[in-house]
Design a protein around this nucleic acid. Structure first.
Lengths: 198, 198
DNA sequence: TAATTTATTGTCCCCGTGGTCAATTTATAG
DNA sequence: CTATAAATTGACCACGGGGACAATAAATTA
């Protein structure tokens, strides 16, 4: 592994700090000063490594996404068959490390800004495109051609919907219910079979 | 109809103005000054009729919800049978007047703040509770007892998911796709039948 | 060791914000 | 018409935010 430069390290530390604050305080509450403090650095350094606040938040978006992506990769590697592949991708989105109210809410906060931030939109598009291209081959193998597109949309929409609700932290949806619901959906979309294991 | 007091009128005007700005500029961009200007009033008046900014945003939340609720009521009134009732409720959420990127995004913005605002959370809870109580009787009539709960969660999650995606304004989801997906979901959840008409 | 680059700090500034308030206009009622 | 109350304004303030920058410390290289 290439030795990390100071810049890489600092950017990473700051991004992680910002991610934490974002989860706790939302976008408005994610202030340069707070991020710096959390990272144990001065405020000035933040703008030394990031062009501006948006640049920092973009890094947060990429980080959050990278974490989830790694989880997907890890699970897909262990998955067997097309059905298993789909289930692995989905299950990653509900892994205990990611399916947490604060994290869902952090995503919600970022998503809410997408229409007013070109780069956010770009990143979001990339994320969705990858999710899609992960899903499609397996779906094509599992479903008649005419149903593939709809299944991809449906699966992602269901994930998003459960994330959104969970991100509200109203306690009106438990992890178990979300899991069960997702199972149920996959079962009908792909044909009944064993569920997604947490 | 009771004659509206000045206070009622002003509050309504200001709330509508705030709702507009929220759709265009998000929560951070929804500033007291901009709201006042949009409503053609002075900034001072805003805080004469609302305790503070949060109070105004709560009113926006209630307004947005009331508009949607009315649409639901209107459609449910015309609906026939339990199945028709469910479809009417769902269809209201995709009516052209409501299923618009700006509106979906406005909701997203408000939802993102729920964990950090008690009153937002309260309102959100009420909204969900009503959605649920609207849905449940019909679902109970249509499904075996064991599936009712899951169906209610699933329907709302799917709606939320499609709203979220649409609110991103990335053009990756058309109204037609959303409609079709919702149809598809209802068909499998309730048993195949005619779809939701726009 | 000296020179130079890089990392880091702390101070400073400007601006927009939410929010307060006394002054003023407009409506209401006696 | 006058007095009282309500509606509305605009000036004002304190605060915190993002961002710029010169000064300093640390590290690197010659």
């Amino acid at each position: 592994m290439a030795r990390a430069s100071i810049e890489e390290i600092r950017r990473r530390e700051l991004t992680e700090a910002a991610y934490e604050i974002l989860q706790e305080q939302g976008i408005a509450g994610t202030t340069l000063a707070k991020v710096a403090e959390r990272a144990g650095m001065s405020k000035g350094i933040v703008l030394h490594y990031f062009r501006d606040k948006d640049d920092l938040l973009e890094a947060v978006m990429r980080l959050a996404n990278a974490l989830l992506r790694d989880e997907v990769v890890r699970r897909v590697r262990r998955a067997k068959g097309d059905r298993g592949r789909v289930e692995a991708i989905v299950a990653a989105n509900f892994a205990p490390a990611f399916f947490k109210p604060e994290i869902c809410n952090a995503w919600l906060s970022l998503c809410a800004e997408v229409p007013r931030n070109r780069e956010f939109a770009r990143i979001q598009r990339v994320i969705h495109a990858r999710m899609r291209s992960n899903l499609m081959p397996a779906l094509r193998a599992l479903l008649p051609a005419g149903e593939v597109e709809a299944a991809a949309i449906g699966i992602t929409a269901m994930i998003d919907g459960l994330w959104l609700r969970f991100g509200l932290s109203l306690g009106s949806l438990t992890r178990e219910q979300a899991l069960a619901e997702m199972d149920r959906y996959l079962a009908q979309a792909l044909g009944a079979a064993d569920g997604v294991q947490a």
